[in-house]
Computed example of a mutant assay.
Amino acid sequence: MSDEKSNNAIASTAESEREQSSLTTPTKNPNSIPPPSEWLSAYNRILDRHPLRTKMITSAIVSAFGSALGSYLSNTSSRKVDKQTGSVFSKINWTDVLSYAIHGGLINAPISHYWFEWLSVNGPSSNTASVLVDQLVVQPPLLVLMFVCLDIFRANIRATINQFREARVISNALENAGPAIVASWRFWPFAVYLTFKYLKKKHYTVALNLCSVAWTVYLSRRSPAVSK
Rank of each mutant, 00 (worst) to 15 (best):
N8F: 01
I46T: 09
A183D: 14
K228I: 02
S21I: 03
A60Y: 00
V62L: 07
L210T: 15
T205I: 07
R158Q: 06
P36A: 06
G105C: 03
T24S: 14
A173M: 07
N8S: 12
Y198A: 05
N75G: 10
V121P: 00
D134E: 12
V62I: 10
V182A: 15
F89Y: 09
E166C: 03
G70V: 03
S130C: 11
N7H: 07
N172D: 15
K28W: 03
T58V: 12
K28H: 07
I33A: 10
F164W: 05
T54G: 07
Q139M: 12
V148R: 02
S227L: 02
R165F: 00
S22K: 08
L73E: 11
A64G: 12
L210A: 15
N127V: 04
S171A: 04
K228Q: 10
L40S: 09
T160R: 00
E38T: 12
F65D: 08
N209W: 05
S227I: 04
E19Y: 02
F190G: 13
S223Y: 09
T24Y: 07
K200F: 07
E166S: 09
K197P: 13
A68V: 05
I181M: 12
K91P: 01
R45C: 08
P110G: 09
K201V: 09
D134K: 02
S2R: 04
K91S: 13
I61E: 04
S112H: 01
A214H: 10
R168H: 07
L210S: 15
L208H: 06
V206A: 15
Y218P: 02
R45I: 11
A167N: 08
R221S: 13
T160K: 00
S78W: 04
S112A: 08
A173Y: 05
P30W: 08
S212P: 03
K228T: 10
E19I: 12
G104H: 02
V226N: 05
L210K: 03
V226T: 14
R186A: 15
T205W: 07
L210E: 14
K28D: 15
A225S: 13
F196N: 15
V88A: 14
T58P: 00
S59Q: 04
S99P: 03
S212N: 12
V138W: 02
R53G: 13
I170E: 02
P124F: 10
N162W: 01
W185H: 15
S171V: 03
S125E: 12
Y218H: 09
V148G: 05
Y193S: 14
S220V: 02
R18C: 08
N44D: 09
L40K: 06
S220H: 05
S212D: 11
P179C: 13
T160P: 00
I157S: 04
S227H: 05
I92L: 04
G86K: 03
I57A: 08
R154V: 13
R186I: 11
K5H: 10
R154I: 09
K28I: 06
I46V: 09
P110M: 02
I57H: 00
K5Q: 11
